[in-house]
Write a protein that binds this DNA or RNA. Structure first.
Length: 416
RNA sequence: GUGGACGUAGCUCAGCUGGUAGAGCACCCGGUUGUGGUCCGGGAUGUCGCGGGUUCGAGCCCCGUCGUUCACCCCA
């Protein structure tokens, strides 16, 4: 009498074996370069005071205005599942006074994020991101390092078919001057209702319009890049010089639009070529006013968020990762109850020595156990029965060559 | 949120103009006594996404709904 099935909520990404192996590999690959660069872990809540995102990310953004999972908790507080990582990171830095210590504060995180969007391949309501934040330093060198760390993560996965796009959003004065001219330009256009509404929220959005005729029209629009203050321009030039010297390839995209309000100055995106419509695999930039906006000191910062789900999709599209190569070192097949106990003892000892060891549980026939061992891709197999327990020697079988050799149980660890 | 496509065993799919479901792979057991990969034999599995409707009869037609997917939007 089967009960009605309960399925996962709409649009979530979840990973089970064997694909979870790839997910783990991708996530670890993205994190490793940050660890090597001295970034330290922060583990933050997935829900925050709704106000944090309204103030930090900006109420005019789509993310905040229509994509947040917001609810009222039992204490009548408005709570929101985090749609991105930077605002929460800044909140924690302020709350724990990390900004009162040595600068820059360098942090990394990894976890689930939530946006109530229409699901699509590569776009989920719960998705995974790895990110870093470097707070309290204005040096263009740190911009370049942050970008290089992200790039190294993608390279560690083996990705090749992606490009890094960079631009500078300049400082507040640069943007204000540009906005005046851009708004003037847009007012001369004949726009449909949805588009002019978007323009009124954030005129830069029109640069992101995918319709061919809009692209033509917008090709005549004034570019923010041409309004950069001297300081912003020098900073950005320096970032590019560092990237060139480090061999990090990039293309300039003066029309780049970011969906979060806090970005300033250096801004970048990683775009994959094989991913269709949801092609952004990572992005980030400077957010020089965010800390102050959230009630902290006036410290600048820069960071990125990389999409683990999308990076995995990209890796699969490029065919650069494989499911094999994740098997254990040894598979022990016990024959009988006494042998099972011995097998478990042997397994525990070997695991202490750092070997991965599995046991054939269940009362399967030897042939069935061998088949299971074979399918798991394990490197070695031993059978434990009366003889082995008596002599303390086992026949260690190499599963790829089929060759067996006699090994003393006590020296199995060395033989693996 | 808007528009299009799709939804059959664990997976990939077949099922002709409506007549109460199939293949391959995977899975389990066996091919005589303690060693896998090939081969052979046998076996289990589906409320044909769900709910209505039309019909003597629907996996095939209609409506709704849920889910997936593609594009828009947005972005990781």
């Amino acid at each position: 009498m089967a009960r009605a099935k309960i399925s996962a909520p709409k649009g979530v990404s979840e990973y089970v074996p064997p694909r979870s192996r790839l997910f783990e590999f991708v996530r670890e690959s993205l994190i490793a370069p940050a660890r090597l660069a001295g970034y330290e872990l922060m583990e933050l809540p997935v829900f925050e005071d709704t106000e944090l995102f309204k103030r930090g990310v900006g109420e005019s953004t789509d993310v905040v205005s229509k994509e947040m999972y917001t609810f009222t908790d039992r204490g009548d507080r408005s709570i929101t599942l985090r749609p991105e990582g930077t605002a929460g990171a800044m909140r924690a830095v302020i709350e724990h006074a990390l900004d009162r210590g040595p600068l820059p504060v360098k942090l990394w995180y990894s976890g689930a994020f939530f946006r109530a969007e229409r699901p699509q391949a590569g776009r989920y309501r719960q998705f995974y991101q790895v990110g870093i934040e470097a707070i309290g330093l204005d040096d263009p060198a740190i911009d370049a390092e942050v970008i290089a760390v992200a790039d190294a993560g993608f390279k560690a996965i083996g990705l090749k078919k992606y490009r890094l796009e960079i631009t500078s959003l300049g400082d507040a004065q640069s943007r204000a001057a540009h906005k005046v001219d851009l708004t003037k330009f847009i007012s001369t256009l004949d726009l449909d209702e949805a588009t002019s509404l978007r323009a009124s929220m954030n005129p830069l959005r029109l640069f992101d319009d995918k319709r061919a005729q809009m692209r033509v029209v917008m090709s005549r629009a004034p570019l923010l890049m041409d309004y950069l203050s001297d300081a912003s321009r020098r900073h950005f030039e320096s970032v590019k010089t560092y990237l060139d010297a480090l061999g990090v390839a990039y293309v300039l995209n003066p029309r780049m639009v970011r969906g979060l309000d806090y970005y300033t100055g250096t801004t970048f995106e990683f775009v994959h070529e094989l991913l269709g419509s949801q092609s952004g695999i990572g992005g980030g930039g400077r957010y020089d006013g965010l800390m102050h906006e959230l009630g902290g000191q006036e410290l600048s910062g820069i960071g990125f968020g990389l999409g683990v789900d999308r990076a995995l999709l990209a890796a699969e599209a490029e065919g650069v990762i494989a499911l094999d190569g994740f098997a254990s070192d040894l598979y022990i097949i016990p024959l009988g109850d006494a042998a099972m106990l011995r097998a478990m003892e042997i397994a525990m000892d070997l695991r202490k020595a750092g070997k991965s060891v599995e046991i054939a549980f269940g009362d399967r026939a030897l042939k069935g156990a061998m088949k299971a061992a074979d399918k798991s891709g394990v490197r070695f197999v031993v059978v434990i029965g009366d003889d082995e327990m008596l002599t303390s020697y086992v026949k260690l079988k190499n599963m790829s060559s089929g060759v067996t050799s006699s090994v003393k149980i006590a020296s199995l660890a060395d033989a693996l």
